[in-house]
Computed example of a mutant assay.
Amino acid sequence: MSPASTPVIDPVDLTRDLIRRPSVTPADEGAMDVLERALTGLGFHCRRMRFENIENLYARRGTAAPNLCFAGHTDVVPTGAAEAWSAAPFEAEVRDGVLYGRGAVDMKGGIAAWVAAVSRVLAEGDVRGSLSFLITGDEEGPALHGTKKVVEALMAEGEVIDACVVGEPSSQQALGDMIKIGRRGSLNTWITVHGKQGHVAYPDRAANPAPVLARLLARLADHRLDEGYEGFQPSNLEITTIDIGNPASNVIPAEARARLNIRFNPAHTGDSLMAWLNAMAGEAQAASGLRIELEHLCSGDAFLTRAGDFVAGVQEAVEAVTGRRPEASTTGGTSDARFIRAMCPVLELGLVGQTMHQIDERAPVAEIEQLAEVYRRVIAGYFDRV
């Protein structure tokens, strides 16, 4: 495909086309089809990678190294009460220069902006390497059959991605004021202490799990996990629920349950924290004589993309368009970058996230256009440096 024949994509039009597909996780409703048509028209080879009921897409243009990837998701969260919106959530209405719709910010606007940026770069000439897209329909949901599975499959095939930009809405107050170069990991743990039910007047005939659980939780909550890590705040353990479910005042319960979450920096791994929790529970079990059962789910380890040409190049592209150099931050929750980190350096750069997941999610048209220009400079700058 010659530069002269390359179609130039309008980022706002493409965002509107994507919003009109009500792709609430796990539904796709044709969102991947919209994206695949646009990328095929730009010369990408598109692979639909379906795992369970989730549609995913890996598209690549070129075979040479390096391979610069954009990652994102077409799935969105539910709208809530549709009548509470000032514009129908899936009609993609533009009013007073603002585009309304579920996914405008998180993150169909980001996907469309990168597609538009690619079209502009290719209209000027080819790149010295490859461009790719890794798009999932399972980021807002359990994230079990989306990016995680695609990354595993690509790595098994020997596919190489050299750097990746995730289009999550990383900006805080103004476009480009922040990029995310790392994220904390997240570990959920369910604790069950098994006792013996009995009458409160005869405690010798029962074994009360409640005080055992209370003492264990107090020890865990009082433990300081670390003092922080390069660019990260200290890890924190939060008890999210304590459940006994005992409606009677004269019955010692048979079980006591709790759940906790740990948001952790790179000083730890999910495995190291699970080992620590198991050891603490083992001590409590030995002291009490009651069986303590733990179940863990680590949704991703912490990661950090350190300062270097990739990060600096993205910051320079933002500054050239917006006049502000973005802060390189590790704040916030998790994203699919936690899976992509296994393949390459990764960072997040996208629209202002103030209205994501809210009623009347929206993005100014001018900011979508501006983001496309930022992305164009990111792409051009990346291949200029290789």
Rank of each mutant, 00 (worst) to 15 (best):
M1T: 02
V8A: 09
D13Y: 09
T15L: 05
A38L: 06
L39F: 05
C46T: 01
R47S: 13
F51T: 05
E52H: 13
I54M: 06
R61L: 09
T63A: 15
A64C: 08
A82N: 11
W85V: 05
W85I: 00
V94W: 06
G103W: 02
A104G: 02
G109H: 10
A112I: 02
A112H: 01
A113H: 02
S119F: 07
V121A: 10
G125L: 07
D126V: 01
V127Q: 11
G129V: 07
S132Q: 02
L134F: 13
I135E: 06
G137C: 06
G141K: 06
P142W: 11
A143S: 02
H145A: 10
H145Q: 06
K148H: 14
K149N: 14
K149W: 14
V150N: 07
L154F: 02
A156Y: 10
I161Y: 10
A163N: 04
M178K: 08
I179E: 01
R183V: 00
G185D: 11
S186D: 11
L187P: 04
P203C: 03
A207T: 11
L216C: 03
L216R: 12
D222L: 01
L225R: 00
Y229P: 07
E230S: 12
I242S: 00
N246A: 12
P247V: 03
P253K: 06
A254C: 12
D271V: 10
S272K: 00
S272F: 07
W276A: 11
A287G: 06
S288Y: 05
D301Y: 02
F303C: 07
A312P: 15
E319N: 10
E319A: 15
A320F: 12
S329F: 09
S335Y: 11
A342N: 14
M343N: 06
L349R: 00
Q354F: 14
Q354Y: 14
Q358G: 11
D360W: 08
E361C: 11
P364I: 00
P364E: 08
A366L: 00
A372L: 14
Y375D: 04
V378P: 03
I379R: 01
A380I: 05
V386A: 15
